[in-house]
Design a protein around this nucleic acid. Structure first.
Length: 211
DNA sequence: AAAACGGGGGC
DNA sequence: GCCCCAGTTTT
């Protein structure tokens, strides 16, 4: 069992040490589209192409009427550009026509949008609407298991278990903190445990440290 | 359950 | 040159 006190310490240390998340906007439509672009894509390239896209097509109505080929061209470096362009255009159309230009603020409606799965939806709910959800991506899944906070196979399982283990006040920030921590220190392969600021709280470190 | 989608960056 | 990346959809 993990102690609340240790989790509190870990969160405190991460807040102090982890670089800030690169995408500042909390505008739901921009976060939604940027998050779709970010799927299986590094965040630097995601946010540079997202800004280019919004520079030319700022609103749902603009994107709805944009040529799919032009959207694809603008987001090209992010990869999966054809299918993402098509989905972005469809999302823009649905938001503009069915939701009066406003991104829905509940999981059920978000999941109906093309290209929006549980992870993307939860990021929007947490970041833009202050909902009590935990957005579990590969970073959150991996790091939660390494720390020993959960012992799970699938992201869905991780989400359920984390909601039991973590006090609510940590839910909102867990995704952004662990994503940035996962990029810099707690990488999928060859994590930099030697410079990790929370190694004394980490199950993986205790089990793997040498000599 | 596994394949497919994809260019860019790290090593 | 090979592997991975704020996953989702289709087979």
């Amino acid at each position: 069992m993990v102690k609340d006190e240790d989790i509190g310490k870990v969160m405190e240390i991460l807040r102090a040490n982890v670089p800030p998340h690169p995408y500042k906007s909390r505008e739901p439509f921009k976060v939604l589209i940027a998050t779709v672009i970010s799927q299986r894509t590094k965040d630097e390239v995601t946010y540079t192409v997202a800004e280019k896209l919004f520079g030319k097509y700022p609103l749902p109505r603009d994107l709805k009427n944009a040529p799919t080929d032009d959207i694809a061209h603008l987001i090209y470096p992010a990869g999966f550009y054809k299918q993402k362009a098509k989905k972005i255009k469809e999302i823009a159309k649905i938001i503009d026509e069915d939701y009066d230009g406003k991104v829905p603020d509940n999981l059920e409606e978000l999941l109906k949008l093309p290209g929006v799965g549980r992870k993307t939806a939860n990021i929007v709910l947490s970041r833009c609407y202050d909902k009590d959800v935990i957005a579990v991506d590969t970073h959150v899944h991996r790091i939660s298991n390494r720390l020993g906070w959960v012992n799970t196979k699938t992201p869905e399982e991780t989400e359920r278990e984390l909601m039991k283990v973590l006090l609510k006040k940590y839910w909102k920030d867990i995704n952004e903190l662990l994503v940035m921590f996962g990029r810099t220190i707690c990488r999928p392969v060859a994590p930099k445990c030697d410079v990790c600021p929370i190694k004394k709280y980490c199950k993986y470190y205790k089990e793997n440290k040498k000599g």
